[in-house]
């Protein structure tokens, strides 16, 4: 069943397809929540709240945008509100389940890299983080990101440029950006492999 079928079912007052939507989006929404909270347990709580909020608001859905667009709008609003209500600052907590395989040392290296980038992401402004999340992690096109955020594609490009600059600036202190994206990194990775 695809989005058009879900919309048809929704117009008939049928909500049975909700399970299918959760199955299709649970990993992406959970990952988004994890990058926002930096804690596995809080991420699950937030991801569930996103799906619940989406379900609660379904009767208000008028079909002006795609269901997935709407889900992401709910997700970003929920995530922003979750962090606003939080009394304690964001600190990396329990790591999530990851799909990595291989040597334990690879896992440690991956975890270290992951923490560096997550920490850098958490230092960005909310608008910058949102645009990176949708474009790079959720792999949406500029047009789709624009639709979700309710801004023009040009606005998305501007935010992306600023977000990239901020990430570079934050990661500059660690040397990690050059390591991962530059020639030096490619050589070091080849040496590791």
């Amino acid at each position: 069943m695809r989005e058009s079928d879900w919309l048809e079912a929704l117009s008939e007052g049928n909500f049975d397809w909700f399970d299918e939507l959760v199955e299709a989006y649970k990993h992406r929404i959970y990952a988004l929540a994890y990058r926002k909270t930096l804690d596995a347990s809080e991420a699950e709580d937030l991801a569930q709240e996103i799906f619940l909020q989406f379900y609660r608001k379904l009767p208000l859905f008028r079909g002006e945008a795609a269901l997935s667009t709407w889900l992401y709008r709910v997700a970003l609003n929920c995530a922003a509100s979750y962090v606003r209500k939080r009394r304690t600052p964001l600190l990396p907590g329990a790591p999530p389940e990851t799909a990595s395989e291989g040597e334990p040392s690879d896992g440690l290296l991956e975890r270290e890299r992951s923490e560096t980038v997550m920490s850098a992401l958490s230092r960005l402004k909310n608008k910058e983080r949102e645009v990176l999340e949708l474009f790079y992690f959720q792999r949406h096109s500029t047009a789709k990101v624009a639709e979700i955020l309710g801004i023009s594609p040009r606005g998305v490009e501007t935010r992306l440029r600023r977000a990239r600059e901020s990430m570079k600036r934050i990661l500059a202190g660690t040397g990690y950006f050059e390591e991962v994206t530059g020639d030096a990194r490619n050589r070091s990775i080849r040496a590791l492999v």
Binding site: K26, Y30, E44, E97, S100, V180, T181
Partner: peptide
């Protein structure tokens, strides 16, 4: 280069039992 930066990160999956909870 940001594609490479983010692609290097491990994939994050929802924990088992997520749907039932």
């Amino acid at each position: 280069p940001f594609e490479r930066l983010f692609e290097a990160l491990p994939a994050i999956n929802a924990p088992s039992g997520f749907e039932s909870r």
